[in-house]
Simulated scan of single mutants.
Amino acid sequence: MTGQSVRVWWARLEDGHAGLRALLDPVERARYEATADPANRGRFLVGCALSRLALGDLLGLPPADVPLRRVCPRCGGPHGKAELALPRASGGSGVDFSVTHSGGTVGVAVCRGAAVGLDVEECDARLDVDTVAPGALTDTELAALYARPAAERRSAFLRTWTRKEAVLKALGVGLSVSLRGLEVTAPDASPAVLAWPEQLAARPEPAMADMIVDGTHPASVAVVGAGALRLDRRDASATVAAYGREG
């Protein structure tokens, strides 16, 4: 099977432990210590660790030697999207990665030669689809959602959401662009973009794939700048849980 290879690593909030803090740089450590909510602090720690483990595996580097930087495009502060900070001569050219987390699930997608976006959403019974769907779906998508039986709407909505967010993350714009302007195929059809928002005009057709994590949570990955997509999925919970522990 040919196509753009994307490695998607998954871990869980419960895999975090104090030994992973050795992988944080000074900026990340300050952010970690300033985060009051324990769950958010844990997700940030696991996300940083998983990013360095996945990128180190791709680049042939020890995780601790993988440098990341965060620069806000608006203010220049150290809190923007994480990027690989390796010079071309060190193999960093053309490598992209995307981090996602929801609830107790954390994921990182890494690839060479294309921009990648990854999103996962916890399948939470507390989600009020009637409240959030009108702000995220096009009129066509919304009509199709309400044509489904009520019991199917939450999962259908979350599948559509993960596809949209993965595409916008791959383009580097995230949720600064309204989800309502981006239309994708129906949840039970192969993932593809049907219409772009005006802010983005027509873009190259992204390669996309859907996943289910832990048998429950919908996730999607999108790659821009490549043809077909080939997934290499890895459950990295044991790797994250073991890293940095004594003995």
Rank of each mutant, 00 (worst) to 15 (best):
A144V: 05
A133R: 01
G117F: 00
A151G: 10
V110P: 08
S155D: 15
R148S: 12
L145H: 08
D124K: 07
L145S: 00
V120F: 01
V120M: 09
V132E: 03
R148E: 13
A151H: 14
E122P: 03
C111N: 01
V116N: 02
A144L: 03
L118H: 05
V132F: 09
A136E: 13
R148Y: 11
E122Y: 12
V132D: 08
V116R: 06
R126D: 13
V129Y: 06
Y146I: 03
R153F: 09
L142S: 10
A143S: 12
A156T: 00
E141H: 00
V129D: 00
L127R: 03
L118D: 08
V116E: 07
D130T: 10
C123M: 15
A136N: 08
R148K: 15
P134C: 11
R112Y: 11
D139W: 02
E152V: 06
Y146S: 03
A133S: 05
E152T: 11
S155E: 15
A143T: 12
V129P: 01
L127A: 01
Y146K: 02
E121Q: 10
G135P: 12
A156S: 10
G135K: 11
E121P: 02
E121W: 02
L127D: 06
A150H: 13
A143H: 08
V116L: 04
V132L: 11
T138P: 02
A147I: 09
D130Q: 00
R112I: 03
L142T: 13
D124M: 07
D130G: 14
A144G: 05
R126L: 07
R153T: 08
T131K: 12
E122N: 04
Y146G: 02
S155M: 13
R154Q: 00
Y146C: 07
D124V: 07
R154D: 07
A143G: 13
V132A: 02
S155C: 15
A125F: 09
A133I: 08
C123A: 14
C123K: 11
L137A: 03
G135H: 14
R112C: 10
V116S: 01
L145D: 00
G113Q: 10
D124Q: 10
R126V: 12
E141A: 05
Y146A: 00
E121L: 06
E121C: 09
D139C: 05
Y146F: 01
R148F: 03
T131D: 15
V110S: 03
L145Q: 01
A125L: 01
Y146Q: 02
A144R: 06
A147V: 15
A133V: 05
L137W: 00
D128V: 06
A136V: 08
D128F: 00
D130M: 08
G135Y: 09
A147L: 13
V129G: 06
D119V: 04
E122H: 11
D119S: 03
A115I: 09
L127S: 06
A133C: 07
D119T: 05
G113K: 13
C111F: 05
V129R: 05
T131M: 14
E122Q: 12
R154M: 03
R148Q: 11
A136Y: 02
A147Q: 15
A143P: 04
G117V: 02
P134T: 09
V116Y: 04
L118K: 04
L142Q: 15
V120R: 03
R112V: 02
S155I: 12
E121S: 01
G135R: 13
D124G: 11
G117P: 01
T138R: 06
A125S: 10
E121N: 01
A151L: 14
R126G: 13
A114T: 11
